[in-house]
Design a protein around this nucleic acid. Structure first.
Length: 277
DNA sequence: ATATGGCCCTGGTTGC
DNA sequence: TGCAACCAGGGCCATA
């Protein structure tokens, strides 16, 4: 479900709640391995480690863990969570009723529990032992920090439409369907336009629009349309400021033209046919 | 190398 | 009210 702003909101919320906690025991659903790392190896790796920090890279949530059993000087580890479309991370009392589709539970020394819930099971869990694995770096560039030249280079000579190009996580990590549509509207660019045909000025408008829209959405706690809930159980409010996303047939906030919906790369795409050229 | 389409899953909404 | 069709914020994989 979540894109960069929602993942950032969740990561911050989880960081505030579990930083400094120690993972005692873990439980992973046995009926399936929705995981990049086998459940048994995740369990072995996680138990007995301290959570040093939780942060976001692209659409991934990264738990930075200390060395196993506090061995000083030993390498740490990472637990990497991708929420997919419907994944949630909850910090609860161990007595709290178990939500349907709970796939993992980590009991914490402070007495609470961290749970991973994901009805649609598109989410992924991965464990990296930094004694043998490389640290996690997102698949592509960070849209919040990328510079103009590097941004322009991502799309050079590409024939694919700019909208699906924005969704390619190997180019930019963190942009999903909502913020692709919203940033293209703010940059006044047609979603169907070939990525490689964007002018330098358009590319720079797009880069700035992405930064602005993502930062603004983070401040508002992300978008919540159906089932998105952040670590507080509170909802984000950015969806109230969507200009085009899921506004098919409604008037453009700038010119009043009816917002159009098309399908690009199998994803619904919303734009204003008057404002976006 | 790049681009496209199918597929993985469940659940909510819409329309008959 | 019941039921089917359609839709959903993602990403992997096979194929061309």
């Amino acid at each position: 479900m979540p894109e960069l702003p929602e993942v950032e909101t969740v990561a911050r919320g989880v960081h505030d709640r579990v930083r400094g906690e120690r993972i005692l025991e873990t439980w992973f659903a046995s009926h399936r391995e929705p995981f990049k790392t086998p459940a048994a190896r995740q369990a072995r790796g996680l138990e007995g480690r301290n959570i040093l920090a939780v942060h976001r890279t692209g659409k991934h949530i990264v738990f930075e863990l200390g060395p196993a059993n506090d061995q000083p000087g030993e390498p740490g580890a990472q637990w990497i969570v991708h929420l997919g479309m419907t994944g949630r991370l909850l910090v609860t009392s161990p007595d709290a009723p178990l939500a349907a589709h709970t796939h993992a539970r980590l009991s914490l020394a402070g007495g609470r529990e961290l749970r991973f819930v994901d009805p649609r099971r598109f989410g992924r869990l991965e464990f990296r032992d930094l004694a043998r694995d490389r640290g996690f770096a997102g698949p592509g560039a960070e849209p919040l920090t990328i510079g103009p030249d590097e941004f322009a280079a991502l799309f050079r000579r590409r024939r694919i439409a700019i909208k699906p190009a924005l969704l390619n996580q190997k180019l930019l990590s963190g942009v999903g369907n909502i913020y692709a549509d919203e940033s293209l509207f703010r940059a006044r660019i047609r979603p169907r336009k070939a990525a490689g045909r964007l002018t330098r000025a358009e590319l720079e408008r797009l880069r700035q629009a992405l930064r602005q829209v993502l930062k603004h959405a983070i401040r508002l706690g992300g978008s919540s349309i159906s089932d998105y809930v952040n670590a507080d159980g509170a909802k984000g409010f950015f969806q109230l400021e969507h200009c085009v996303y899921q506004r098919t047939g409604e008037p453009c906030r700038t010119c009043g033209t009816s917002i159009r919906r098309i399908v690009l790369g199998g994803r619904s795409t919303h734009y204003c046919p008057h404002c976006q050229k």
